[in-house]
């Protein structure tokens, strides 16, 4: 299976009621011990600086993000704390109001283009932080 199969799939509850579309797939990255110390200083390219980059192991699927509105792009605003520039941030938040996370354990069935959730699934907070 590929992630592209899941994205934009219709999401139904156990009784066949429409909930929206898959807009993203949440993963948990296993972090390995990281000894690398980012170089800093005036003569080091900024891009080699202290930006977050993690030494990773396995990547496990933990859930699906479901938006009741549309399957379009988020520009990254919905699930992070970024609130500027205000005009674009508030527009994106409005467009994707009502997005929720559903745990992978509560996904019951995956068919082409349609995903059914288990009875009594929980709507979890979609934010990443």
């Amino acid at each position: 299976m590929i992630i592209g199969d899941l994205l934009a799939s219709r999401v139904l509850d156990h009784d066949g009621g429409g909930l929206g579309h898959v807009v993203d797939v949440r993963l948990a990255l296993e972090l390995r011990d990281d000894d690398a110390d980012p170089e800093t200083g005036d003569d080091v390219p900024l891009s080699q600086g202290a930006l977050r980059s993690d030494l990773v192991g396995q990547a496990e699927v933990v859930g699906l993000l479901v938006s009741p509105h549309n399957g379009g792009s988020f520009l990254g605003y919905e699930r992070t704390g970024v609130r500027s520039p205000w005009m674009i941030a508030s527009l994106m938040r409005r467009m994707h109001r009502g997005t929720f996370l559903v745990a992978w354990e509560q996904v019951e069935q995956i068919e082409e283009g349609t995903i059914t959730l288990a009875q009594g699934f929980d709507r979890l907070d979609p934010s990443l932080h």
Partner: peptide
């Protein structure tokens, strides 16, 4: 638009956000 957005993203920009 994408540049305006990313210039605000701390994951890319760290302390150098707009």
């Amino acid at each position: 638009v994408p540049i305006l957005v990313v210039a605000n993203d701390p994951e890319y920009m760290g302390e150098h956000v707009s």
